[in-house]
Design a protein around this nucleic acid. Structure first.
Length: 435
RNA sequence: GGAGAGGUGGCUGAGUGGUCGAAAGCGGCAGAUUGCUAAUCUGUUGUACGGUUCGUAAGUCCGUACCGAGGGUUCGAAUCCCUCCCUCUCCGCCA
């Protein structure tokens, strides 16, 4: 949610910064806000008089006046008249407020001061690269879906029978690898100071609205028909909402959480893209990092968050680069965002594997996440940040492609080996299984 | 799913139509005091919105709203009525 006060104080500047992201008209909100405040003043004055009357009637009755005393009847009459007036003003004010709310919820966050200017993803800025030396150099590398199917560890065909297209079933070593990645990532993050949570995988409308998925992007998520519940599109939603409508104390901050959840996305409007493989599925696993911090620290917390996500790629020796998204490519709720992109040998390109955003007070305002500093009056909105650490399916895809061997086998990254049991215990590679 | 009970301030818990934003206790904060890792006493202590005076600001003052949520009755509702949500207990079912 945008900060209405900030908008009111300097609409010009507000509008300029908002328009770095696209076309947005703030005039309607401004006008409605003005109207609403005037109405509120009138209404609350009437209300005050009405309260006075209520008290006066009470006082008279206490001191022995009869209910049909002329004075009391007069007061009652005035009260009734006021009530009628209020009955007209109240719905007006309510609908103004609702309109303002609707418009405000539709406005994206303002880009941070440091976000590079740009119209779209072509103007994102590469910050750094890591792991060039790990980029495989051999010819004829298979895309992960071919490799995975050949190894018998990914099954797309049967999955679309069970569900639809854009679903996968992981089999044998594929499932084991996925599971080991989840455990490995979580262990690393816990070591780095994050507290693991396993939140609900279904979330309500209020939660989806607080983090910014709703109301604008309803068609992106799966909704349960009979309940006010949505399949979580990212752990960001349940984890951030853990503290919705709470006032924490400043000493509680920062709070760091990591969470594994499956994620569900309709991927409406992306039908042509990434139709094969693990890159774009309706259901995928993700380990997420979420931070709740004091506003004064959020910039450095953001940098640290990116590093915590990148550390996973480095431990797995997967080559990656860091992009900073420009103003035109920023997600709806983000003020600043870094993407981590992993090297995909088959396409000879980097693909997004983590998105690390600083939302500043945007989600906190929508979800009413506040904190109080002892000694200080009032409350403040805290800052929220989150990042994938990492998208597990895409990590598996990158791993298969980057670790594939000329003989069709796939090496198992060393850091993962302790996590593999059963038939893979002590193994250094996944070999093709004869059919 | 069936039956019952209940949702009050950071917590415990009073309050069944008027002076209740709400007793009391605990906790928190400030001060006083005692020669001591603490006790005692005094004061203070919710949030949001709007207005206002002085102010660079913090703040001051006034009004309104909030006792699970939304509606209703009434001059007046934490208190009465309706709907919904949630929690607890018992039964049923179930991983």
């Amino acid at each position: 949610m945008i900060d209405l006060k900030q908008l009111r104080e300097d609409p010009q500047r507000f509008s300029e910064r908002l328009n770095l992201r696209g076309e947005y008209d703030i005039q309607p909100i401004l006008a409605l806000d003005q109207q609403q405040r005037e109405l509120e003043e009138t209404r609350s004055q009437l209300q005050a008089r009405s309260n006075q009357i209520g008290k006066a009637v009470g006082d008279r009755m206490k001191s022995g006046a009869k209910p049909n005393d002329p004075e009391i009847l007069a007061l009652k009459a005035e009260g009734s008249a006021l009530k009628e007036q209020l009955g007209e003003l109240e719905p007006q004010e309510r609908s103004l407020k609702a309109e303002i709310e609707t418009l405000s919820l539709g406005l994206p966050n303002l880009p941070s001061e440091t976000t590079p200017l740009g119209k779209n993803e072509t103007e994102n800025v590469e910050i750094r690269r890591w792991g060039d030396e790990y980029i495989p150099r051999q010819e004829g590398l298979l895309p992960h879906w071919e490799l995975g199917e050949a190894l018998g560890i990914l099954n797309f065909e049967r999955s679309s029978k069970v569900a639809q297209s854009r679903f996968v079933t992981l089999v044998g070593a594929g499932a084991a690898l996925e599971r080991s990645l989840i455990s490995f990532m979580l262990d690393r993050h816990i070591q780095a100071g994050y507290t693991e949570v396993i939140p609900p995988f279904l979330v309500n409308t209020a939660s989806m609205t607080a983090t910014g998925q709703l109301p604008k992007f309803a068609e992106e998520s799966f909704q349960c028909a009979q309940d006010d519940l949505w399949l979580t599109p990212t752990a960001e939603v349940p984890v951030t909402n853990l503290y919705r409508d709470e006032i924490l104390s400043a000493e509680d901050l920062p709070i760091y959480h990591c969470a594994y959840t499956p994620c569900f996305r309709r991927e409406a409007g992306s039908y042509g893209r990434d139709t094969r493989g693990l890159i774009r599925l309706h259901q995928f696993n993700k380990v997420e990092l979420v931070k709740f911090v004091h506003p004064s620290t959020s910039a450095q917390e953001h940098e640290a968050l990116v590093q915590d996500a990148a550390a996973i790629l480095e431990a797995l020796k997967l080559p990656y680069r860091v992009l900073e998204l420009c103003t035109g490519d920023l997600g709806f709720s983000a003020a600043k965002c870094y993407d981590l992109e992993v090297w995909m040998p088959s396409a000879e390109t980097y693909r997004e594997i983590s998105s690390c955003s600083n939302f500043q007070g945007f989600q906190a305002r929508r979800g009413n996440l506040r904190f109080k500093e002892t000694g200080k009056k009032g409350t403040q909105f805290l800052h929220t940040l989150n990042g994938s650490g990492l998208a597990v399916g895409r990590t598996l895809a990158a791993l298969l492609e980057n670790y594939q061997q000329p003989d069709g086998s796939v090496q198992i990254p060393e850091v993962l080996r302790p996590y593999l049991g059963g038939q893979l215990a002590g193994q250094s590679a996944i070999a093709p299984t004869p059919k």
